[in-house]
Every structure is written in C-alpha cells, then in structure tokens.
Design a protein around this nucleic acid. Structure first.
Lengths: 345, 345
DNA sequence: TTGCCGTCCGTAAACGTTTACGGAACTATG
DNA sequence: CATAGTTCCGTAAACGTTTACGGACGGCAA
C-alpha cells in the first residue's frame, strides 16, 4: 500500500478526507486535519506529482528554456543566475516552481520543445535565446501554452516579450562618443543571427546618420561572445589601416579579451581608444574601469515572471498591468574606458 | 476527445494498439504502425507526461539541483553549462532529459528537495553545492532515489560522488611554490562552510608541513567567490605587516578582482608576488596570464552522468565500471603569474 | 415530533497512459 | 479436416491523485 492510501489506512479514514485535509479544503474537521498532517510528516508522505497533475491538468511548474554548451548565449557568467533569482521571487508567492529546461547544443531547439514541453510538462514557459525567426513561438501560440520570450523576434504571434533596450544603449553610446569628438566608431555584434544583432547595428547606423556619419562595414565586428572573441576583435581592429577611435561592445565577457589584446599592443582604453561595453561583475575590476550599460537582472526576472503570469488565466487577475511588450532600460555606469577625447585637428 | 483516444477514434482502432504502435512494441502490424505514426504527426499528438509517468512509475527526467542567485556557489553560468553539456551527451543515448532544479536562494535546500523532488519528479538526481553536513544525502538515501553528488560531504550514506581533486591541486601548488623559494604562502577558502574549504586548507597545511613550513592563520583568506571577494583579499593581504610572497586562489572569478587590487597598489603578479589559481575562460586573458589548474568540465559531466546511471537499476548494466567515488584530476596550465622567485638571502 | 440546515466524511469517477490477458483470424502441419 | 501455432488487435485494469456527489449525524427552530 502506497501513497495516500497508506496514509488513509493508517488513520482509518478515507482517502478523500486525507486529500482534502492536505490541500486545505474547507469540508474537514480541524481535529482530523491535524491528525492527517501529523501522520503525513510521520510517514514522510509526499503527494505524487504525476497523479496530481494528471488529475488537475496542471503541474505548478514553469520552465525556463535555455541552451547548454558554452559559447552559446554570450551572457555574462552570472546572467541567468541573477535572472532566475528575480523570477523565483515572484513565483514563490504562487507556489510555482521554476526549472531550467536544458536543450542540448546537439539538438534542435524546436525538436526539443516538441519533445519535452508539449507533453504538458510545464504550465508556462520562458524562452531565452530568441531567434530572429523562431518557430517555437508559433508552436506555443498554436497550442495555447502560456509563454513569454526574453528577447524580441520577428515572428509575431502576439506573444508577450521582454528585452533589453539595445536601441537605447546604441543611441546613448553613439551620442556620447560623437559628443566627445569621435568620428570613426566601431561596433560589435554576435556571431550568430540573433535578433539583437540586427536591432543594435541598425540603431547604431541611424544614430550615426543623425550626426551625419556613416557606419562603415569594416567597423562592424562579429565574434563569439566570450573572452577569445573579444581578443580577436581587438587584434583585427588594430590591424586596420586606419583603426577606429572608439568602439561599443555588445557582449559582456568580450571586454576582458578585448582589453588584453589592446594591452599587448600598448594601447590603453580611455587614453588611446574609447571603449563602452555592457555591465558584468568584472566591469569595475578592469583597468581602467569599463564604462558600461547596466540593468538589474533581478528586476528583469521579476518582470518576466509577472508578464508570464498575466498571460496565464489562473493568475492573470493578480497582474492586471504587467508589461506585455517592453524593452528594459539600461543605465550608464561611468568608468574611465571612454574618457579618451579625439584631438581636434 | 483528447489524447490517445482522439488518435484511436480518428484511425478507428483501439487505444491499446495506438499505444503499442507509438512505443515500438512488437505486437503490431507494420502497416498500422505507419498509419498511426502518420496520424500522430498530422494531428500533432504528443503523449501526456503525467499519464505516462503515472502508469510507468518513471519520468525519464534527471534533475540537476543547483542554487540560484549569485555569490552562492562561486560557479557561474559557464561552469554549469559546460558540465551540462557532458551530462547530456550521455543521457541522450538513453532518452533521458536533463532539467536544472533551481532552488531559490531564499529557500532552504532541504525543504526544496522534500517539496519538489520527493514527489517522483525525477528518476535520478545530481546534487551540486554539497555541504559539509548535508541532510539531503540522508533523505535521498532513505528513499532509495538514485543520486550522485558533485562534491564530497562528511555525510556518508554510501552514495556515489565525484569531486575536483582539490587535494592534488593543493599539493602541487604548494610544492611548486616552495620549490621556487617561497616560505610565506597564503591561501584562500570559500566564505561558507562547504567541504572543499576544509579539504583544501587541510591539504595545504600538510603539504607545507612536509616542507617544514607552517600554515599561518592570518594567511588564510575567506571571501565571497566573486570579483569583489578577490579584490578584498588582495587589499587585506597587502595591508599585512609582512605580506606573503605567494598565494593560491581556490575560486575562479576572484582572480580578476585580486589582480586589480594588486595593480592599483603597483604590485605585479609574477614579478612581485606569485599567484596560482583555477582555470576559467578569462585566465589566459589576464596580465600576466594566470598559472592555474584546469579540468575538462565536459568530461566531468560525462562521468557524473555515467556514475548516476550506474546507480540506477534500469541502466546499471550499461555502466559496469563507472567510477563511484572519485576525485577528478586537474592539470596545471603554466602562465606567468607564478614566475616570481623569492630572492635568496 | 418534524423538518431543515450545517458539518463532516465516504464513495466513486475521472485524468491519460501502458500493458497483461485473451481471443479472433489466419497459416502451417499432421 | 483437426490441431497447433502465429500474428495482430481489443478489453480492461492499474498507476495516485482530486473532487463532485450524496449521505449520516447532530443541532436547532417551529
């Protein structure tokens, strides 16, 4: 005899009463409820997840889909950990559990979604590493599975999404550098075709154009989003006939490699070239400190959770005005890496 | 009508046959099997996870329990992503899916384990952030849930574990530094009471003793396992009346902050002080490159998976000689941060 | 007393699968 | 033709819960 039956047998009451007692339903004597709860801890009873969710049609689990293997996401080393923390702060209020659905780098994310998620594994989903064209979005929308994406996509099924404000960052960075006299400004973009690359490059181009400047193709650097990628960018940049006087780094960890390659060439950020990047815990500990754009990842996680819940009928009442589509602003943290002023001729 | 019934109705055959056809059971005509599979994709049928696992008593899911929030484990996203990659390489062969069970930093890991895992959520578990005394181990052992821990614990229920060879690292690092003439050698340990701190400190002490040297208490530095922690260590170290001539860093990211604080004081690793640390993707990109201990995290992940599977009756046949308890060796990567030789008086 | 209401509890169905069992139809063998 | 064996399929039970429904019981008012 196992499960709730064992508990019922042990107390000599029916399983219905046991279930009601455990779940805080009203139709049960407080005295018996106490006995049930006591027996549950005594016998170490824990309700079976499959049985419960089969009956209820709900799992109380939210999945955060992400890809494993390194060199994929280009987020800093603690990026996801911080976001998770915020997401969970919200979910905890509703007894929802967050699990990370780890899609192997060997498997197509679309296959993975069909295989794992569509089986009713989770009540809702958060999608990361959103692609420019992302079939996952259509798939989930068709099946009415609540979800929110971290990152915009061209695929539009009316889904909620949140994203970092790369446009604001592009605009502010370009304006700032131009104001300091820079005319030849390089930018970076991810090595793959994530949407953010297009967004960022496009906005940089327009921001430059507003100042009467052109974004030159050979000043757009692609790289893997890690230290080695940043190192390579700096090498390529320094090898140019006429190197740029400033650069905006779109990824977080590439700054470390970028700094190193410069250092080896005797070039110093802030003195010989202006560098603006993205915040990461190491940004303050570079020499000189990196001028960068920062946001609260925990707050972003909170917003993600609230947006998702507002798309779930069971919870939407609690979040009437959660954002549906929103770019998340980043604030400029002044370092010294961009204090280089272009000498006026 | 939903699920397998719908499929059966659509094909005008029984649900039993549909199930057998989908699961590759022998007692089914090849012709009907084809029709079933075709109809399944046509109708977008995906078997329900709860129903299946309720009946089978198995979920085909393996959980990797970890804690969210930063500044906890000292391991970042890239650490786990690399390990996951290896784990999944093995699991894929057995149609097992890996999910990360994210325990909020707000919640006690033991409560979390009871709440989520004990409900039959996963067929097996990998525990990280193992504590020196870890009730989770007893809990799982009592319930006969297969698991393996990443990290040793004093709690011994005969469970399998894998761990990094911190003892080998301690021994090699100390020997190396002593051979280079160092007598005052500092070491670091995590801020909390994870077992690795005890193991590492203890072995360093014994390694020093073998050379007739003592490990002085004020040369053992505790810190949070991030850049800020490393920064603080360097500041404290330089403030000593008689600073050490060498240091061994046990965490990965603390090297960045450590370097920075030294740099601000005009102290250069490799020239004024010898530094040995742990490998991380940024280790090569520090100036000078960090001499550090490295291991293949992907291989570690593979070993973790194999060890877990060998503890699961359904799979143990495939892995007769997977390691049960094993420390995973690290190799020394020579940089220039420890090339400082103590001048002989 | 009768009737009604409220409290508490037991019964049984339902969720979506898998699988043991048995049987129908057909083939092969004597 | 009778029998045995093979191939394929349908039936129904089972997994562990939750919950709608109804009933037993006691208290209270009329």
């Amino acid at each position: 005899m196992k499960g709730i039956r064992r508990l019922a047998q042990h107390l000599d009451i029916s399983i219905g009463t046991v279930s009601r007692a455990l779940n805080g339903k009203p139709d049960v004597n407080e005295e018996t409820r106490k006995r049930v709860l006591q027996a549950a801890t005594d016998l170490g009873y824990v309700p079976n997840q499959s049985g419960r969710s089969l009956r209820q049609g709900t799992t109380n689990i939210i999945g955060f889909m992400m890809q494993t293997g390194t060199e994929i996401t280009g987020q800093g080393d603690t990026f996801f950990m911080s976001v998770f923390d915020g997401v969970q702060a919200v979910f905890a209020r509703h007894k929802l559990d967050l699990v990370a659905l780890l899609c192997s780098s060997q498997e197509d994310p679309n296959d993975y979604l069909r295989r794992v998620v569509a089986r009713g594994f989770a009540d809702g989903l958060i999608l990361s590493a959103t692609q420019r064209d992302d079939p996952r979005i259509e798939f989930l929308a068709e099946r009415n599975i609540p979800f929110v994406t971290l990152g915009r996509s061209l695929t539009d099924a009316g889904q909620p999404w949140l994203d970092l404000d790369f446009e604001g960052m592009a605009q502010a960075a370009i304006d700032r550098l131009v104001a300091r006299g820079h005319r030849r400004i390089a930018i970076t973009r991810p090595h793959d075709d994530t949407n953010l690359g297009y967004i960022f490059v496009d906005r940089c181009r327009r921001a430059l154009a507003a100042h009467g400047l052109a974004l030159e193709e050979d000043l757009i650097f692609r790289s893997t989003p890690n230290e080695a990628g940043g190192y390579q960018i700096a090498r390529d940049l320094l090898a140019l006939e006429e190197p740029p006087t400033a650069i905006v780094l779109i990824n977080e960890t590439i700054a470390i490699g970028f700094y190193q390659a410069l250092s080896e060439a005797g070039v110093k950020p802030g003195r010989d070239i202006a560098v603006i990047g993205r915040y990461s815990p190491h940004a303050h500990f570079l020499s000189p400190p990196l001028t960068c754009f920062r946001l609260s990842l925990r707050d972003l996680g909170i917003a993600l959770a609230e947006t998702l819940l507002s798309a779930m009928p069971a919870f939407s009442d609690h979040y009437p005005d959660a954002p549906v589509n929103r770019v998340w602003p980043m604030e400029l943290v002044e370092g010294e890496s961009d204090s280089f002023l272009v000498p006026q001729r």
